[in-house]
Design a protein around this nucleic acid. Structure first.
Lengths: 337, 337
DNA sequence: GCTTGGCACTCCAGATGCCTGAGTGCCAGG
DNA sequence: CCTGGCACTCAGGCATCTGGAGTGCCAAGC
């Protein structure tokens, strides 16, 4: 059987449906794409595709719409990687290279992704787990209140305020600063935590040093603070179309929950773009949406992730290309910083 | 004439319309509120109110709806300050007191406001202009790359990465650090900028010191970084009701533009709650929305602002009370930190 | 002079019914 | 295996109708 033509029909259906947002019929299909066969033939193919669960019709005598399974097949086998135009590459580069600060990089990435894909963009900060400690700074705000500033290799800067039981004089402060840095500088977060726990004074209770190290350990191992995510392009939800309550609201809710966002981004290795379509995701309410995501980071192991969220009916090739490009660019920036 | 009754009618109309989202008629009015008069009388009053432009009817033979002017009169003269219940006060306190870090305070405030008002909440970080410099830390990442960390009295921490033309050794770094801090610690941002500009080495070009001070001056006077705003509760937009494209989309767009947000919050003195209703705002597209905002900060001069955005048809007394309470709470926290 | 009941009028919203066009499935012939 | 033809289905648009909620005005009453 002409299996390839059937797949071509599927591809055409996906493309047309994405473009028009309307169920696509056999006649329109042969007209808009140059399949050299008659509508009747296409109808037969469609029937077969429907049997396989790749497409469906909203009601009898309406056109066909791809199912989640259909989209899946489309992205897995029918998508040709659409490279970004050089103009686009240039635009990305010039927009991103103005950023030096990590915050800047993240914020710009979000805007860029949202802009490129016309969808909601999500960018996760580099995880703490994949960073090493570059420096710890201890600043006395008053004599019983310290600000700890933790500077990580990825450019992240975490702050923490601690209240001391007893005042600490300048010399003690300097000692503390050097001993802390000696213990943890250059270490991974995991190693730093154990190094801090092993510090001689750690055993004693309620000493300033003990309080500070405890706060640092808490800051480093606290998963909540690890989950920093930035969202942008929410106004693109307006393009979502019909069914506000049922589709947009759950998304807005999800976007407010960092935990949910992180689950959506999932784990992807750097460089590889993951696509999660409709029901494949962990949340029932988000069944009408897809997520295109990628890890980023210098090596193979990602240190963070970014992606876009949109309706299942979305431009997968375009989104995948954009996510891929931005992830690569961010990786590059982080590499040499 | 019975002016007070007319106002009572207006108040009743506003309350009912806010509650039901539907134009309110004369009969329903006398039934739901205990006005001791007949529907016919109320109709006369309504006609008068309509002449004054305080209410309007969507079409002949429909109930009445308050106009912007009507809401304005309502908030100015007909609103009795509804104090928060002690339970609510307690909830606010317990939720907020877990925050120490400024970031924490801001994030929690947003959530809290969104929760209390069931609307979109906006919280601005303390402005740089109203802060004094507490400390400047200079960390060498490599020998030609420094991370400047600027710690302000309000708890804000700004970072900036600078690239040096020539390597800087440890001693020079220490000198730099102390001289910077001697120059600016305790100064207001404005004074700090001039102090930095007056540093002896500033004149020389391309020295490390010159590069660093230039970066600091830029960081302190850069208005873009001054405009940090956090938004939350966007999923409450779903309660907005009808007209997605026309109402919700412009709001989502506005929420992505920091500049617009700041304009919306406007300037309010600390402690006083401002209400901007519909067309009173600077943006035509946001004519269906109102903003309830307040400055916060220890003294009378606000160091930041926060508020909520919602449909003109919103619960003004409740929102005003919530905004007021949160602003006061945030002021309190910042006072003793 | 304000209030009130009555009454005629308006007009939206929802229900009903009809019709058209797009699209399908199937069959018989090439 | 493709194709043209044909009967069938059904959503969506359009017109029509009706009920009900609400109004404005007027004349009578307190």
């Amino acid at each position: 059987m002409h299996d390839e033509r059937r797949l071509a029909v599927l591809r055409a259906i996906v493309q047309d449906y994405v473009a028009t947002r309307e169920p696509v019929g056999s006649r329109a299909l042969v007209e808009r794409h140059g399949l050299g066969v008659s509508p009747a033939t296409v109808r037969n193919d469609m029937a077969a595709l429907e049997d396989e669960g790749l497409i469906a019709q909203p009601h009898t005598s309406a056109g066909r719409v791809p199912t989640d399974k259909g989209y899946r097949l489309f992205v897995d086998r029918l998508t040709t990687v659409k490279p970004m135009s050089t103009a686009e590459r240039r635009a990305i580069a010039s927009f991103m290279e103005e950023a030096h600060d990590l915050d800047d990089v993240v914020r710009r990435s979000v805007r860029l992704l949202a802009q490129l894909t016309q969808q909601v963009a999500i960018v996760q900060y580099p995880t703490l787990a994949s960073s090493t400690v570059r420096h710890i700074e201890v600043v006395a705000l008053t004599d019983t209140r310290l600000l700890l500033v933790l500077i990580l290799s990825t450019g992240r800067v975490e702050q923490r305020l601690v209240e001391l039981p007893d005042p600490l004089d300048d010399d003690a402060l300097a000692d503390l600063r050097t001993s802390l840095n000696r213990a943890v500088t250059g270490e991974t977060i995991g190693a730093a935590v154990t190094a801090l726990a092993d510090l001689p004074e750690q055993g004693l209770h309620r000493t300033p040093v003990a309080v500070v190290t405890a706060a640092l350990i808490e800051a480093m191992s606290n998963h909540r603070s690890d989950q920093r995510v930035v969202v942008g392009g929410t106004s693109n939800l307006a393009r979502f179309g019909d069914g506000f309550e049922s589709t947009v609201k759950p998304i807005l809710e999800a976007l407010e929950e960092q935990v949910v966002l992180l689950k959506l981004l999932g784990e992807a290795s750097s460089g590889a773009v993951t696509v999660r379509i409709g029901h494949e995701g962990p949340y029932e309410e988000l069944s009408g949406t897809s997520v295109v995501a990628s890890g980023y980071g210098p090596g193979v192991h990602p240190i963070g992730a970014l992606g876009v969220v949109g309706p299942t009916r979305m431009d997968y090739p375009g989104s995948m290309a954009a996510v891929h490009a931005v992830a690569r660019y961010v990786s590059g920036i982080l590499e040499d910083s």
